[in-house]
Simulated assay, not measured.
Amino acid sequence: MSQPIRWNVDDPLEHWSKETFLLNAELSELPDALSGESIYETELHWELLNKDKVMQEVATLSSAFALLVNAHYQTSPNDLMLLLNNPNMSLYTIKHRDLVVGSVLVNREGQLEGELIERIYLGKSRPAGHLVPVELCNHLALEAPALQSCARVMRIAVHPLIQGRGIGSSMLTRLRESLCREVDYLATTFGATNELVQFWSQNHFSAVRLGSSRDKASGTYSTTFISPISDQSNEWYEQAFDLYRQSLPFWLRSSAKALSPELAGLLLSQSINHEEAACIHPLVINYAEGGNAFNTVRPFLLPLLQCNELLPLLLVAVIAQEWEWEQAAKHFGFTGRKQTEQAFRQQLKQLIERLQCK
């Protein structure tokens, strides 16, 4: 798309705004060799662009912001204005031989006063600039996250030509090391996709909340991930994760029923309680072998999914998301209910065998 809708072609105000707010910033050109050679940690330079450096190193700022604009459709002029004016917002960059190859935009949140927290707790106030502490306080009834200090990763981006090389993970590790004495926990919110959930989970972040509605632009459900740092944050994090684990099955069969079974299964597998043993009801075993009816065993099926990380997607769709047989048949390519349920019984039997071997 190149034809503007809300202004004329070559509109001077549009050119001015793009130039002023760095929305036309170009990605840095990388040497051809860099796309094929190994990238070592020792070659990466991590840096905080504080307010003084931002004004002095305009080229670095432009390169870092170009990465954010390229990676995130929601990056706007407001992000640049906040970075320049908001003391709670920071921009970190990672360079390879003086070239900016990654950037992270971080917002400091939390450390709120008791009276304000009480209003948040009751849903009477939502102070701007404290997204995660407010969400955890209001939706999970936890006051500690609002009292403590949080660093929320608003945006993270790696140059598209060298993604998948560990640079994003390196930035999160360095961010944690940089802030370990200053904040109690790291956080992030994003529209859930398989790739993003896997990325954040691999970097020691865990889901504590799944949104109840889909984003109108991306069609994804917002998720909140937490990485505790201090001992104090570990205390309430366990509560938050337990609440999430208990609530997830309900969300998957209600407000988040439209999630793909792939993503629903991934979220379920990451909420497993490894200390909880599977309780396999005899009726479930009989059903898997071809006996009795699905509705007879339905109340006993969900616990099986909460004790195993390797979840067959058909089981996730039918058990956790409560899809009708017709919907499952269409999604997985079966001819109808009979063939779908036959496959369901077979996958259930394999899951039972796997659990019995533990």
Rank of each mutant, 00 (worst) to 15 (best):
S2R: 01
W7M: 04
V9Y: 11
D10P: 00
D11T: 00
K18D: 12
E19R: 06
T20H: 14
L22F: 11
L30C: 08
S38D: 09
S38Q: 12
I39E: 03
Y40E: 04
E41P: 08
E43P: 09
L48G: 01
L48S: 11
N50V: 02
K53H: 11
A59H: 13
S63A: 15
S63H: 14
A66S: 15
N78D: 13
D79A: 10
L80V: 10
L82A: 14
L84A: 13
P87N: 06
N88F: 06
N88H: 11
T93E: 07
T93W: 03
V100K: 13
G102L: 07
E109N: 02
L116G: 00
R119K: 15
I120M: 05
K124W: 04
A128T: 08
G129F: 11
P133T: 10
L136N: 03
C137Q: 03
C150T: 12
V153E: 06
I156L: 15
H159P: 00
L161E: 14
I162C: 07
V183G: 06
Y185N: 10
Y185M: 08
L186V: 02
F190E: 06
F190C: 12
A192D: 02
V197M: 07
Q202L: 13
L210K: 07
K216Q: 14
I226A: 07
I226L: 15
Q239Y: 04
Q246M: 10
S247M: 10
R253K: 12
S255H: 12
L259W: 11
H274D: 03
H274P: 00
E276Y: 05
A277N: 10
V284C: 00
I285P: 01
E289L: 11
E289Q: 13
A293I: 07
T296P: 00
V297C: 01
P299A: 04
L304N: 07
L305Y: 05
Q306D: 00
N308V: 09
L311K: 08
L311D: 03
V318S: 07
A320W: 04
A320P: 02
Q321E: 00
W323I: 08
E324S: 15
W325E: 00
E326H: 09
H331Y: 15
F344K: 11
L348V: 09
Q350T: 08
